[in-house]
Simulated scan of single mutants.
Amino acid sequence: MTAKAVLIGPPGSGKSTLGRMLAERLGVEFRDTDADVEAVAGKPVSDIFVEDGEERFRELEHEAVRLALAEHEGVLSLGGGAVLHTETQALLAGHHVVYLQVGLSAAIERVGLASARPLLVLSPRSQLKKLMEERRPVYERLAVITVVTDKREPEELADEIVKGLPA
């Protein structure tokens, strides 16, 4: 099985919003691996980080991505840090990976500085900037399609992605 599209990118890039819209346009289901992790753990991602630690979250996340890539034929959204796992990177080979690139200002506007995202609790602006800089080379290497999301409407982005996907 191969997903129609696998969306990657930092927090605030629009993976969930655009993923749902893209799935609707393609007539397929949408799946978010963060939601899968929450379902397995029985608690929100932020609680997993606090109660179980980031390492445990990353284990659950990798397993969620592995299962989703094996089972899901629709549009799949990965958590921002999922691509850091080397085995996950290998699993993404051959998939239609779409990198949603976003600038720091746009990401902050979308995520907000009072974010409940666990990796952005202390000094959210500088943490988000650091995450984006560290992850950008991985996102770029894995992507088959890169779409800049700043100051663009989701409908326009969905159109661009659909045009870039194989028929």
Rank of each mutant, 00 (worst) to 15 (best):
T2C: 00
A5H: 08
A5M: 05
L7A: 04
G9I: 04
G9A: 01
P10V: 13
P11C: 10
G12Q: 05
K15N: 01
S16N: 04
T17R: 11
T17H: 10
G19R: 01
G19I: 01
M21V: 01
A23K: 05
E24L: 03
E24G: 07
R25T: 01
G27Y: 03
V28L: 00
V28N: 04
V28M: 05
F30S: 06
F30D: 02
D32I: 03
T33E: 06
D34A: 09
A35C: 06
D36L: 14
D36P: 01
V37P: 00
E38K: 07
E38M: 10
A39F: 07
A39D: 11
V40R: 13
A41Y: 09
K43H: 11
K43W: 02
P44H: 12
P44R: 11
I48V: 14
I48T: 02
V50P: 00
E51D: 14
D52G: 13
D52Y: 15
G53V: 13
E54Y: 06
E55W: 13
F57W: 06
R58K: 12
E59Y: 12
E59H: 14
E59I: 08
L60V: 10
E61H: 09
A64L: 09
A64Q: 10
A64V: 06
A64D: 13
R66F: 12
R66I: 05
R66W: 10
L67S: 13
A68F: 00
L69M: 06
A70K: 14
E71D: 15
E71L: 10
H72M: 02
H72D: 09
E73I: 07
G74C: 13
L76D: 03
S77D: 10
L78Q: 02
G79M: 11
G81V: 04
G81P: 14
A82I: 12
A82F: 07
V83L: 05
V83H: 04
V83I: 15
T86S: 15
E87P: 04
T88I: 09
T88A: 12
T88K: 02
H95S: 08
H95T: 08
H95A: 00
V97H: 06
V98R: 00
V98L: 03
V98Y: 01
V102C: 14
G103V: 11
A106M: 15
A106R: 15
A106L: 10
I108G: 07
E109A: 15
R110L: 10
V111E: 02
S115C: 02
R117D: 00
R117C: 05
P118G: 14
P118E: 11
V121Q: 12
P124V: 06
P124H: 00
R125L: 00
R125P: 09
K129D: 09
K129W: 08
K129L: 13
L131E: 08
M132K: 06
M132R: 09
M132W: 01
M132N: 09
E133N: 05
V138M: 07
R141L: 05
L142D: 03
L142W: 00
A143V: 02
V144F: 05
V144Q: 12
V147P: 05
V147E: 04
V148N: 10
T149S: 12
T149L: 04
D150G: 11
D150A: 14
D150F: 10
E153V: 03
E153T: 13
P154K: 09
E155C: 09
E156N: 05
I161M: 00
K163N: 14
K163F: 02
G164R: 03
G164S: 06
L165E: 01
L165K: 03
